[in-house]
Design a protein around this nucleic acid. Structure first.
Lengths: 205, 205
DNA sequence: CGTACTTTTGAATCGCATCAAATCTGGTGG
DNA sequence: CCACCAGATTTGATGCGATTCAAAAGTACG
């Protein structure tokens, strides 16, 4: 397994102890596959590399509501503590993920102080990021959300986009059309300037 | 300090070791007060009991963007690891909070396995909750967000509201008017039935 | 008893979603 | 190397639903 490459994609993986790394497995998953069902024992901790996973709950009409959607990073951190899943986990887009035995994961957390601290830091960062995202999604207009994103995720008033604009639109809770139009208008405004995947704030914000 | 009452408000407080509890301080804060500025050393870990705190960042025009807003629970978990604040923390609404010395908090995490596990579980729950909230805020219509909220936060298709509808509207990223109107319509639809603070799903969802 | 806040309803406006379609892009296989 | 295809990007027209502004009624609390 090429840990070097995986770690560049996901820095938290760097802090995983060797003993746990040895137990990790790459797994290719297909669209529609169900990784877990409600009530199943938690056996694996997943780290999404290139697929899309969804944590869903079904109501009595069989309609599903999406609780989480993940295209990268650890998935189902909350299940690690408890014993069984409260939701279903399905693959929405084929690709690859890493899986670690949950018991070994828990044990590694107990035994390695370094890993444990990295894990706490990881969760805390995730909390901060998600709180900022929720705050952003409460903003009413497209332009406000874009500015908020650049000011919170960018460095030095500049954002380097690491995903397609279409994917960005999803993260911003917008349609891609709305995003494209707003970007164009804000460029005309000189609210921001765009150079490929690099977006910089101008003076009119 | 009345820990019994505080714990009912915030279960995670129950797992705090006695030594750390002794170091906790109640603190009354006034609107406009600044608890921290960018670059300050992290000295305290806060737990919001009854005020509103905001984590904000200012751009060069002095305009502030809100990164987080908290009306209850731990605040600034992410700062605990690093040494200094990357944002300002201000009081948006007067009230009371608990503060723990950050160094003692970190030490307690090292020394008490029980507390540490509780903290990891707390962070993981928070991550799950926030992911669900972000997912919900991406839904387009008021009705969808309400249903999502009940299905993810409620028990047995029933939600017991622990806050005013106005505050709920903020959590849903809506104006209170939109929420009131949607609730009324959904009652007429028999999508849900409302009895005071108890909201139950009907059959038409 | 008054004040502050929540709840409720109304009317007008506007921004975004939606549907549609054209163009551009990178990657695949013949 | 070119043809082709899937996906991303871009632009247009339309309608709906949420915001906004306004105001009245209800409620809690000192």
């Amino acid at each position: 397994m090429d840990w070097q490459r995986l770690i560049t994609l996901q820095p938290t993986l760097a802090k995983i102890p060797e003993t746990l790394k040895k137990l990790a497995e790459e797994r290719n998953v297909d669209k529609g596959e169900t990784l877990y069902r409600v009530g199943d024992q938690v056996r694996w901790m997943f780290s999404v590399i290139s697929c899309e996973l969804r944590l869903i709950r079904r109501n009595r009409n069989g309609m599903e509501i999406i609780l989480q959607r993940s295209r990268s990073g650890f998935f189902g951190e909350a299940s690690l503590t408890g014993g069984t899943y409260h939701c279903d986990v399905v693959v929405a887009e084929k690709g690859m993920l890493l899986q670690f035995p949950a018991s070994a994961f828990r044990m590694a957390l107990e035994e390695s102080a370094e890993f444990r601290n990295a894990w706490i830091a990881h969760l805390a960062r995730e909390v901060r990021r998600l709180r900022a995202q929720a705050e952003r999604l409460c903003l009413r207009t497209t332009a406000e959300r874009i500015l908020h994103y650049i000011e919170s995720e960018g460095v030095n008033n500049t954002l380097v986009l690491r995903q397609s604009r279409k994917a960005w639109a999803v993260e911003l809770g917008l349609t891609h059309e709305a995003l494209y139009r707003a970007l164009r208008k804000m460029q005309a405004d000189e609210t921001l300037s765009i150079d490929g995947n690099q977006i910089t704030l101008g003076q009119n914000n």
